[in-house]
Design a protein around this nucleic acid. Structure first.
Length: 349
DNA sequence: AAGATTTGACCCGA
DNA sequence: TCGGGTCAAATCTT
């Protein structure tokens, strides 16, 4: 499996390189063709090895892989599809990764959905059950009381008891640079090269730090020996969830009101069936084997496509897990939330 | 215009 | 003194 992942990773890197050099290669079809062939070959090899080991688990998955690969091959012929595929694959994998997280959050043991999602994200099935997305709410008593006397800028020590470290899987396909979503909204405030590490460490604080005096922070760093895994260190406590109006309230895992099958299939499909998400919807039709909405051409997309989905997913989580006191139908809210996220981005740029 | 991200500089614990 | 963590101005995005 390790070898296969390495192949996929290699393919992704090749694709990235191709993408970045597209402007320079626009009038060099032979070079483009060669690069596309190379990428196809890498992914084909990976897929063949995957097929041998997991095909029996979910044949539908490989229909999606086939569809993806066909689209990739068409890239060299039809440039208009390039952006479509790039954003669709990136977003789909991001979205599917979100599905992984939600599956863990709601302690879903959805056999079909779980297998589909985990495999479609290009990696092994990860132990979602062991990742308690909401657990970093645990109180960090030392946070508030320290740094009072000596320094104007309170600092934490490395061995601070308030640190909680998790390892979470990175998206295997698409933009693997994106830190994994965890149900909170974070604002990046720094990035630093760490001695002896191949990858820089990113520093985040809660988006609502000022508004709610929320002291939660997290560091995200990719593992040297496993670029597919992020090590996420949480520090501080989220005080923003104490407010009734605070956004991005972390979901209590046991309160998931949505039946697993409905969530992983219908919800995920419907979530992307807006005009803005047509390509993604098509991709998900493949990977989830759903009916889909049909119609519509390949719409425009932006580089932030995936991130918008991240936010949309966050809103979905909010809607799902905070609908207890509301009289509003949670699923309706979710879909409206998705529509709201999709509509404006169509008009932007 | 407001919010988010980037990035070089600074601070401070080890 | 070194290196990790944070600040804050510049820049980018929406």
């Amino acid at each position: 499996m390790e070898e296969v992942l390495s192949l996929i990773f290699q393919g992704c890197n090749l694709a990235k390189e191709l993408e970045s050099s597209l402007p320079n290669l626009a009038n060099q079809p032979e070079v483009l063709s060669r690069l596309c062939d190379e990428i196809s070959r890498v992914f084909s090899t990976a897929r063949e090895r995957l097929s041998a080991s997991v095909l029996h688990q979910d044949p539908g998955l490989f229909r999606a892989a086939d569809a993806l690969q066909q689209q990739q091959q068409q890239q060299s012929i039809d440039p208009s599809l390039q952006e479509w595929l790039r954003t669709a694959s990136t977003s789909a994998m991001g979205l599917l990764h979100q599905a992984q997280l939600f599956a863990g959050m709601s302690a879903l043991q959805n056999r079909a959905g779980g297998v589909d999602i985990a495999m479609a994200s290009g990696g092994p099935v990860v132990e979602l059950g062991g990742r308690e997305v909401g657990h970093h709410l645990a109180m960090d008593a030392s946070e508030s009381g320290r740094g009072s006397s000596s320094s104007q800028r309170p600092r934490r020590r490395k061995d601070d008891a308030g640190r909680r470290t998790e390892r979470v899987p990175a998206p295997r396909v698409g933009n693997t640079e994106i830190p994994p979503e965890d149900g909170f909204t974070w604002r990046k405030y720094g990035q630093k090269e760490i001695l002896g590490s191949r990858f820089p460490r990113s520093y985040f604080r809660c988006t609502h730090q000022k508004l709610y005096n929320c002291s939660a922070k997290k560091q995200v760093q990719r593992l040297d020996n496993d670029p597919f895994t992020f090590e996420v260190t949480y520090r501080g406590e989220h005080t923003c969830h104490m407010s009734a109006t605070a956004p991005s309230v972390p979901p209590p895992p046991q309160q998931a009101p949505v039946p697993p099958q409905q969530f992983t299939h219908e919800l995920m499909t419907q979530a992307v069936t807006g005009a803005h998400h047509q390509p993604l919807a098509r991709l998900l039709e493949f990977s989830l084997g759903g009916g889909g909405s049909g119609g519509g051409g390949a719409g425009p997309s932006t580089a932030r496509y995936g991130k918008e989905l991240d936010y949309a997913i966050s809103d979905m989580a909010d809607a799902m897990f905070n609908s207890g006191s509301s009289s509003t139908n949670s699923m309706e809210f979710i879909f409206h939330s998705m529509e709201d996220k999709g509509e404006p981005s169509d008009t932007k740029k």
